[in-house]
Design a protein around this nucleic acid. Structure first.
Lengths: 341, 341
DNA sequence: CTGAAAGCGCTTACAG
DNA sequence: CTGAAAGCGCTTACAG
């Protein structure tokens, strides 16, 4: 209904075969030595009849849809929204469209979405997985679907993966806090703490405090109940036996919830409680106090991931299954100022 | 390569025709009175051979791709990221995937993307258009492609459109400022000020000040140079003949840039300069000062838009071409506190 | 209850 | 230089 004009119509209109029309439209006129004149007639008809090629038919024939899938936990999250934008630009520059899907950290949903995208014959998949084990995705990969993990990996020697150096980021924050004189951190992690990114941030962070012989507490907040869980944790802070002097929010959602919660209960940052987090947001740099944060190399993560995906889609086998880790950046700001001051 | 098992394989494996297999797989077994036994054998083979239907082939045959396109200026913008997420949920509940495209407010890019999506045979299109004139999109609509505008309209009696009541929002902010004793507002709009949403926000805002006989200045910032333009405007604020006592940022990007800029130049809100904006962001409610903002009904906009799109996709003609305007909410906060205080 | 056949709109050997 | 034919993997009248 939306597209009534087909190759056949334009072939008949010009009085040639659809082979010819197809050749011309795909820029193979030169190669097949089709006369300039014929080309022009075809092109004129295309314009006149307002012909638009049916990509579904083309896809079926050539076995490629020029579509890639991007799977994240939530496209509304600032980190993934940025990632989506950068990924879109990279993909569209190569003629690919991208279908974005949100999993809400649900493994079943993720698997359902991946299966759906494969049925749609996407040429490749970039996924920020919520799965713990590599098996399911490995089966997908080994059955021939180009696949690269982003943001989160499932161990070396399993699947191609491009992530931020989360462990180092966690460690950088911890070193900084120790330097500033803080010694009783509370880590606010996610209930989905098996996720490599979160786990590594926390590990890197805690290891540093351990090295210094300092205690370190960890609490978890639920993916769908971030604000409520953070509120509850922070309200009861003073009642805790362990009295933290600084907070580490493991991602931007938790950081925002923490700021919200501390503001509501009138806790002063950093004098009452210091705070640092993973993921940098624009507003961190100008609110009072400004917030110390780790900035992730989103652009590089996207380009490396797309690079690997392209290789895979070109049929090249990807041998090195070492996880690609990209360096992060520590932005020191007021929220973690020297404790004595 | 990714999908070697076809209907034919499983038909042969079971020893039936592919018609039968197709019927079973599409839940038409009952309808065609196919025996339970046959069904089971088919289903068993599907499982055993790990068959996944090729949706591209299906789409070509049935003339529907079960895909919709969502076109916005920038998916990384918090407003559109939220919209995308809500839209994804609505669409996927009905079996649709969504392809998201960013236009950067470029009309040519928008048109290119829409043509591309139509060639991909998307079943429908939701677009936050950057175009000034309805003609081009109207041609798309009238050629039979289900299309609904969102966030921005192109006039009544042109195309189905679902927008926020931007004019009222602008007026609400202005009334509030006037009540609080402010009388020399500076509006920070976009260079793409023909966009209905921005234009209406500004009109609604200015009309109120006009009614009160108060002056009102407007400056424009470029879509791709928001921070730089805002910085320049605000740095020279004191040099201006017109000395504003309050700022109206017409969207969330500009608001964030304004806050950044004011913080950098140590301007106190609201004592030195009050500020209000369109679009509410989570951090507005807890930074100091909290920021007065208009909250858009994103969820309702998405559901109304998807509702209309569904009607269109079902082939029902959509008669009323009145723009659907949804009410916005004013969240009064500290950034626009009574001037005398 | 089940199957043979046509056809969706393309692309691509193959033949001349 | 150009065309007839096959086929991508489905769905759907049509026939029995």
């Amino acid at each position: 209904m939306a597209n009534r004009v087909t190759l056949n119509h334009i072939a008949q209109h010009v009085g040639v075969s659809k082979t010819l029309v197809s050749l011309v439209l795909n820029g193979k006129a030169q190669q097949y030595g089709i006369s300039k004149q014929t080309c022009d007639k075809v092109l004129a008809a295309v314009k006149e009849l307002n012909y638009r090629p049916n990509k579904t038919a083309r896809s079926l024939r050539i076995g490629k849809t020029e579509t890639v899938g991007l799977i994240v936990s939530d496209i509304a999250n600032a980190f993934y929204a940025q990632m989506a934008r950068m990924f879109e630009d990279l993909a569209s520059a190569q003629g690919y469209s991208v279908i974005i899907c949100s999993t809400d950290e649900e493994v079943e949903k993720e698997q359902r979405l991946i299966t759906m995208l494969r049925n749609r014959q996407v040429d490749g998949l970039v996924v920020s997985t919520s799965q713990r084990e590599p098996e399911w995705l490995k089966a997908v990969y080994e059955s021939g679907t180009p696949l690269v993990l982003i943001d989160r990996h499932l161990g070396s020697d399993t699947l191609p993966a491009v992530v931020a150096d989360n462990r180092s980021g966690g460690a950088m924050l911890a070193h900084h806090l120790v330097e500033q004189g803080y010694n009783r951190p509370l880590v606010l992690g996610l209930s989905t703490n098996h996720i490599s990114s979160v786990a590594e941030r926390i590990d890197g962070f805690m290891d540093v405090f351990k090295e210094h012989g300092l205690p370190c507490a960890v609490r978890e907040v639920g993916f769908n109940t971030v604000q409520a869980d953070v509120d509850e944790l922070l309200v009861n802070l003073k009642a805790l036996p362990f009295k933290p002097d600084c907070l580490f929010a493991v991602n931007n959602n938790i950081a925002t919830a923490v700021l919200h919660s501390l503001a509501a209960s009138n806790v002063k940052i950093p004098s009452d409680m210091a705070m640092v987090c993973f993921d940098d947001l624009p507003y961190f740099s100008f609110i009072s106090p400004t917030i110390t944060a780790i900035e992730q190399p989103i652009a590089q993560m996207c380009s490396r991931a797309f690079e690997v995906l392209s290789q895979l889609m070109d049929g090249e086998s990807y041998l090195s299954h070492e996880v690609i880790r990209l360096p992060v950046k520590l932005n020191v700001r007021q929220s973690s100022q020297n404790k004595s001051k």
